[in-house]
Nucleic acid binder design. Sequence first.
DNA 1: AATTAATTGCAACAAAGTTTTATTTTTTTG
DNA 2: CAAAAAAATAAAACTTTGTTGCAATTAATT
Lengths: 138, 138
Amino acid sequence: MSQLETLLKKYNLSVTEGRKKILQLFLDANAALEHATIEQNAPSLDRVTIYRTLQSFVEKGIIHTIPTTDSSIKYALCKDECGHGHHHDNHVHFLCNTCGTTFCIEQVTIPKIKLPAGFVSQQADLVVSGRCNLCNQN
Amino acid sequence: MSQLETLLKKYNLSVTEGRKKILQLFLDANAALEHATIEQNAPSLDRVTIYRTLQSFVEKGIIHTIPTTDSSIKYALCKDECGHGHHHDNHVHFLCNTCGTTFCIEQVTIPKIKLPAGFVSQQADLVVSGRCNLCNQN
DNA sequence: AATTAATTGCAACAAAGTTTTATTTTTTTG
DNA sequence: CAAAAAAATAAAACTTTGTTGCAATTAATT
């Protein structure tokens, strides 16, 4: 049984060509992907299938969404702690304004934020934008 | 000259009914608004006019965008420091999972984040989600 | 008040996302 | 391993969201 199949089974998803393909894209990417990018890289898959696959990956805790200020949605692989219904992706995200890539910065966790009285925090998302390490080399 | 007119002139925008109406909505709201909400509350305005007005308000530094994990875009009033082309909205945003409202938490600024070598930060956005002060009273 | 410049509304269009249904594929079970 | 059941897919139709060009209107300038 391939790595992909093992991974999908682990998250209680049946193994299909589409899911394997999309999961492979995430494993290869090392960065966040959006629907349009996946559509380009997996032309054999129907648009709707990609929507549904992303949705079920999020539900199962395989990938998480990353906030953006435009109207796009970006997705990236979760680490092991995430499972069905509960995400624990409390790391910083970095968006490079030069190359457009979005990275998970796993090493940097989001600091605790002290909120005004009455506000109770359940989750925090922190997106830093600027110039990434690769773009700074050139 | 009304408060609204003064404000629009200050930002070098000509005074029109639509702009006054939309600016008023923001002043009244005390929370972030999205396109759909404005469309509902200003039915006399054309959809396209609302898109264009929001765009010019962002350009002039009257409002700023707030990142979301879904594909919506939220806008909220800026404070005085913002001007044409340069925003300085380094405060935390709070999204209430109960009532759905998004607030600017002006009192809380975003902490400096130490990034891995090679990454240069230009801007940071921090969205905390949970339960707001109003929802916690009930 | 007349001219110029900017904004608006409308229509047409393009892109993004959803829903339904029939077909195909995967999983389960005997 | 084959048949039955369950789940996933593709295709079509549709809804929502955002954009562009242009003529008509409104605001600013002189």
